[in-house]
Amino acid sequence: MRARLFPHPLLSLVLAVVWLLLVSSLSPNSILFAVLLGVFVPMFTQPYWPGMTRPTRLSAVPGYVLIVLYDIVIANIQVALIVLFKPSSKLQPAWVSVPLEIRTPEAITILAGTITLTPGTVSCDLAEDGHAILVHCLHAPDPDSVREDIKNRYERRLKEIFE
């Protein structure tokens, strides 16, 4: 019964919260509509999500979000300093191939998004078999440390959340 009413509890929660944020009020009718959205949209869209993986350890999600937010602020300051003060001739852009240990598509998507938002790196492409990700660095005198950073800081935590 519970599985039929809420095939994706997380999606239901996200839909309800987004609706409440959008109407920006907590009146009874907006709450009622949020609950209706949370129940019916996952129910009707369930056939379109076959084999969706679910995060197994939700308790690790807030820590990950906080780390990423902190890194976004740091990344902004670093990139701003590079843009303002580093002459183009001293800039050392580099391509880095990062081998992946995570295999679930959702985790790889989140990792790619995180890489793009954080310090001086943009994720550009995925290997044909999905076992490596191509990252472009704005200024990387030492590409190996970038690889280690991505693996230790983000991938390890995503692996905890999803696998």
């Binding site: 843009v83 303002l84 183009s88 943009v122 704005l138």
Partner: peptide
């Protein structure tokens, strides 16, 4: 305001297409 301006300035200033992608995606988001 400062970060938004730096993001757009970076788009104009950085030397090649791949490095240009960096400036707007970060500075402008903040």
């Amino acid at each position: 305001g400062v970060f938004g301006l730096v993001g757009s300035y970076g788009l104009l200033r950085l030397p090649d297409p791949m490095t240009r992608i960096h400036a707007p995606t970060k500075a402008t988001t903040l």
